[in-house]
């Protein structure tokens, strides 16, 4: 599983970071991005799905999966 944050959509709600800090980083201006190449380590899949389902801007998606 691999996740991606669309920088055009992200508005810095930081809900993804609050739910899955091991998967995302947020800069000083609130812009979020997936850590590394976005690969979700084993055991974090549920939290990745939670981050996707809680983004108010629909900015997070699973790579290769239609949002």
């Amino acid at each position: 599983m691999k996740v991606r944050v669309d920088p055009e959509r992200c508005q810095g709600h930081a809900r993804c970071y609050a739910l899955a800090p091991e998967l995302f980083e947020v800069d000083d201006y609130g812009l979020s991005s997936a850590l590394g190449d976005g690969t979700v380590p084993a055991g974090s899949e549920e939290r990745a799905r939670l981050a996707i389902a809680n983004c108010p801007e629909f900015a997070i998606s699973e790579v290769g999966v239609e949002g």
């Binding site: 508005q11 810095g12 930081a14 809680n54 108010p56």
Partner: peptide, 23 residues
């Protein structure tokens, strides 16, 4: 609640600047 795209802090470019603090 697992699916919760709430907009208590607004939506778009005016998203509450203090949302991390409030939370």
């Amino acid at each position: 609640r697992a699916v919760n795209r709430h907009v208590a802090f607004g939506s778009g470019i005016h998203r509450c600047a203090g949302s991390n603090l409030a939370r």
